[in-house]
């Protein structure tokens, strides 16, 4: 029984992991673009970006999932996105907004003097970004990013609202067969995976500890 349940939960966890990894793959770069928008010198662009970020960060992810999946059909009679795709799109947008604020905080915390030192040494903006500030930004954003990653793993449980069969859904389906423990057993998968993430991030923090 334990083996059957484990196999079926693993299948659900596969969906969880796929959502987690694909979200990161797209949200990490998209967040950087959004952070540039929210720091732009073009005032309308800056305000538009910040408004979008405010709406996305200020409203429940659960509602966003429902709106992205059902919204096109309810509002415009359009065909729906596949369930997993709708969930993924929502997560990418939502997490890109969170990441953008972390990037912005990281970038703005770099002293002006670092940019100016690069400039007077004849570096291009690109060189200054990649050779001077990037690693310093990364060092500063690693701890908050670690938090976001772990939150993301747990947030994936929300997608069962539109019937994406992630691990909690799989665990809950056993309740109908009279088995309660598989639902609680899902916690083990989360704990192990988040444990690995924690180790990865503390290793990264250590790696970047060589400078201050």
């Amino acid at each position: 029984m334990l083996l059957t349940v484990t196999m079926s939960l693993l299948e659900g966890f596969g969906t969880t992991l796929k959502l987690f990894l694909l979200t990161l793959l797209f949200a990490l770069p998209l967040g950087l673009i959004i952070s540039f928008g929210s720091m732009s010198r073009i005032t309308p662009l800056r305000w538009m970006t910040r408004t979008v970020v405010w709406i996305i960060r200020g409203s429940p992810l659960l509602l966003q999932i429902l709106v992205v999946f059902y919204g096109p059909g309810l509002l415009f009679d359009l065909p729906l996105l596949p369930r997993f795709t709708a969930a993924l799109v929502t997560f990418i947008i939502n997490y890109a907004c969170y990441f953008s604020e972390i990037y912005r905080g990281g970038i703005q915390s770099i002293p002006r003097g670092q940019y100016e030192a690069g400039q007077v040494l004849g570096m291009t903006k690109r060189q200054i970004f990649f050779k001077v500030t990037l690693l310093q930004v990364i060092k500063r954003i690693v701890p908050p990013m670690g938090n976001e990653f772990i939150t993301l793993v747990k947030d994936t449980a929300l997608v069962r609202v539109i019937s994406v069969y992630e691990i909690i859904w799989m665990g809950e389906s056993y309740i109908k067969k009279g088995l309660i423990w598989p639902l609680f057993y899902t916690a083990v998968f989360y704990l192990v995976f988040n444990g690995l993430l924690t180790i990865l991030f503390s290793w990264l923090e250590k790696k970047l500890d060589y400078f201050k």
């Binding site: 004849g122 570096m123 060589y210």
Partner: peptide
């Protein structure tokens, strides 16, 4: 501007060394 800057060097009050 980048090219012209190279006529000058600048030492800052706060050093502004690259920490990494």
């Amino acid at each position: 501007i980048r090219q012209k800057r190279l006529h000058f060097g600048l030492v800052f009050q706060n050093f502004n060394l690259f920490p990494q």
